[in-house]
Design a protein around this nucleic acid. Structure first.
Lengths: 140, 140
DNA sequence: CCTATTTCAGTGTTACTGAGATCG
DNA sequence: CCGATCTCAGTATCACTGAAATAG
């Protein structure tokens, strides 16, 4: 970075690193035919089991307006199924299909290789330390 | 984070940390009546001296279309002055005014206190280590 | 009545793209 | 004619807001 003031400024370095990671991830997922929202939604479904769209949106931290389109796309590709909740007619229960589970496994691999690429300059110990330090400042 | 898959994922932690830093910075600068672009432009001017708008944009990593509005705002507040380059009529030379220098000093303080707030959970040694690790993966 | 869910349409933000005018 | 500079207008993106319909 050409500006002295910025090149060891934490907020700046975080922005650069995050942008680079985000770019790598978006590109890698796009190559696999997915976007971040799809991965997060599939992961939430696998970890928490079938859930209403609203619950799923909260778990995967999707905006309520984006949940609809995201799940519709996943359903169109046969990765999830949506059915009305017999106990509460407002809800639609979303479940992961076998194809969805396989897709998630594949995307897990894509995501892992992006981490590898992003952290390539660091040793295993340094990677662990970075994760620890980021966890302390990430908030939430 | 409610999802196991994400809570120690570097790209995810970087996004959270970066977003938190960005929010703190934007808010603190707004309270001081500035935005990130203003700070970067003023800093570039102080570090590199008077420069054309295009050069300044490259130094401060502003988009070419945003340079105009940013500098117009700074000029309206008397923080920079713009004058035609006598040697090249395409260029407008931008210089930092005394008021601009004072404002930059004040914003440096604002930016520093944001770093302090963001990194509050870390010791001095941890902060240095984080900066070092981020520098290695930030790219550019 | 009030709250929760699902959905759609529109807004706001922030970066960027395209193109024109000027000039070396 | 090519390339750089400055400028404006318009677009793309992404998260979000408002509001409506439905139901507990």
């Amino acid at each position: 970075v050409p500006l002295d003031r910025l090149d060891s400024l934490p907020t700046w370095l975080l922005n650069r690193s995050s942008a680079r990671g985000h770019r790598l991830l978006t590109e890698a997922l796009a190559e696999a035919g997915a976007r971040g929202y799809h991965y997060r939604a599939l992961a939430a479904l696998e970890e928490q089991g079938p859930a209403s769209q609203a619950t799923l949106g909260r778990l995967a931290e999707l905006d309520r307006s984006d949940v609809v389109a995201t799940l519709a796309e996943l359903e169109a590709n046969g990765l999830v199924a949506r059915a009305p909740d017999p106990d509460d007619a407002r809800r639609r229960i979303v479940t992961l299909t076998a194809a969805g589970r396989r897709r998630l496994k594949r995307l897990d691999g894509v995501v892992a290789s992006v981490q590898e690429e992003l952290l390539a300059p660091l040793s295993a110990a340094e990677r662990a330390e970075l994760i620890r330090l980021l966890g302390r400042i990430a908030g939430r």
